[in-house]
Design a protein around this nucleic acid. Structure first.
Lengths: 123, 123
DNA sequence: CCTGATTGACTACAGCTGTAATCGTTTATA
DNA sequence: TATAAACGATTACAGCTGTAGTCAATCAGG
């Protein structure tokens, strides 16, 4: 499973939300703050097809792009790689670092609690 | 703050544990499974000095390397970047992904609980 | 039918990463 | 003292990433 680069991930996110867009649609769907040219977007889409993260479906003289890799699979493997490399696979230090920054909402904390309860229920 | 590459991080880890090693010491400290040559290690150390993650202290005709960047600062900023990019800064999905893989030990879970308690105590 | 816009294909190119060879100097050793 | 070993500096080079230009084909509008 090839790596998805930072700049490519934006396009994956758009296509996970709206599969089947053409290159120009993806370009249009970017936030206005994103100044990458349509050409750049096309190059990135081609690379994602090479990496088999997207499938290009011909539609006349253009292509419609569909994710092959799911958002969840990508998130799971990226998360595992990250926690492995930095913390030997432990989750607690990650949460600790995020907690320090004051970036966790009440909702996030509640969600964490639920996950912990679930984990403790497993035997 | 420049990025620390994957291959460079191994060296940082060694030097966080044992500051003040020379290039050959760092090379010797690598696990035997690591086949990178001494030359490669020297190149990586130079790059880390350029990136100001290490300071090179002259000792005769060689250098002793000391981390400038702390392990904690690096972990914190890498973690924030990661969670931001993948999950909009939320911590729960990260833990959820790690939990799925069955990779969390009881100790890890206990640690998470403690962090949660701490977070809830904050008002 | 001509012309301008659109599209994918191909090419470009600099910066970063991973890995190492080579070179010139210095030091230790025989 | 001659030579080998060790050292930092410089150079190399391929793969990945970020960004885009150019080109040839095609489509839409006048």
């Amino acid at each position: 499973m090839k790596q998805i680069a930072r700049s490519e991930l934006d396009l994956m996110n758009i296509l996970w939300d709206q599969p089947g867009l053409a290159a120009s649609d993806v370009h249009a769907a970017l936030p206005r703050s994103d100044s990458r040219s349509l050409q750049t977007i096309k190059t990135l889409l081609s690379r994602l097809v090479e990496k088999e993260a997207l499938r290009a479906e011909r539609d006349g003289r253009r292509f419609l792009y569909h994710p092959t890799l799911t958002r969840d699979d990508h998130a799971a493997s990226a998360t595992r790689r990250f926690s492995e490399r930095l913390f030997g696979g432990r989750a607690a230090p990650i949460v600790a670092h995020l907690a320090k920054g004051d970036g966790l909402s009440d909702a996030d904390i509640a969600e964490l609690e639920a996950i912990i309860r679930e984990l403790k229920a497993r035997d």
